[in-house]
Design a protein around this nucleic acid. Structure first.
Lengths: 144, 144
DNA sequence: GTGTTTGCAAAGTGTTTGCAATTTA
DNA sequence: TAAATTGCAAACACTTTGCAAACAC
């Protein structure tokens, strides 16, 4: 049972469409293209620009503004998670589960660390009137 | 032994000047003013804009560009530490020791958590060729 | 005096937005 | 057809930079 390229592409499109419908988002051409790229493989980390480059390189026309909007819509819909590791760029992670990151600043590279791997103990109670939303751990690394 | 306001101000200026000299920075009027504000009290968290507002409110004229430059010079000199919690703003912390933070995003507020309080266990070895630089923990909180 | 630092205004970067044209259901 | 979405270009917020004037030593 060998699949042609066209068949594989069609399957990915169908999967992306289903995923978008399920998330309550209209499966427009642009969203389907972006979702196909994002969820084609396991865990991915993208910036708006990297994703725009990628989609452009694939010969698909999607404006940068739409990439930004789409990344936020996907994030709101729970398909993506925003990762804050850099004060000048936003990263988005296709892994929305509980996990942490290595971050290689010089190359803007993120690497997932599974959620069970790291244990954070001793987080104090927040000041009165505040509640913990989540605990982010960023392991900053450099070339050695 | 009561000190006049003028005497206190003079002492602060002297302390700031000494600190700058020690860090290898020329104690210019602007740097002394900013250092006096920053290191007057214990632990402070500022953005370029908040510090510029503060210095302006104090009736001192320092341009925003100089505030940016100074924050970076102080950081390089080890007097400040940059804290990355927001992808659109840079925060600087007068506490340069080992510690972590609560971050209340809605108000851009940072609160220190002493270094010994939180224990992070199970940080995996980074991929070959990479070395851990430091481990940042951000406890994101919200009003409850 | 000489090299450093400042302030200004301009440029730069990443991101958001208003709105007419297009697309989806 | 009605409502949602897109693309463009303009606007934005934050930050950096080039350079002449001012300053520290």
């Amino acid at each position: 049972m060998v699949k042609t390229l066209r068949e594989s592409a069609k399957e990915m499109t169908a999967a992306a469409t289903a995923r978008l419908r399920h998330a309550g988002l209209r499966p427009t051409r642009q969203r389907v293209e972006l979702a196909s790229l994002l969820f084609k493989t396991c865990d991915r980390h993208v910036t708006a620009e990297s994703l725009h480059d990628e989609v452009s390189d694939a010969g698909v026309k999607v404006s940068l503004a739409t990439v930004y909007n789409t990344l936020h819509q996907f994030t709101q819909a729970g398909l993506l998670r925003q990762v804050i590791v850099d004060s000048s760029r936003s990263y988005f992670d296709t892994n929305t589960g509980d996990h942490q990151h290595f971050f290689l600043e010089s190359e803007g590279m993120l690497i997932d660390i599974p959620g069970e791997t790291i244990a954070v103990a001793g987080v104090p109670a927040p000041p009165p009137g505040l509640a913990v939303d989540r605990v982010d751990v960023v392991v900053r690394v450099r070339r050695s």
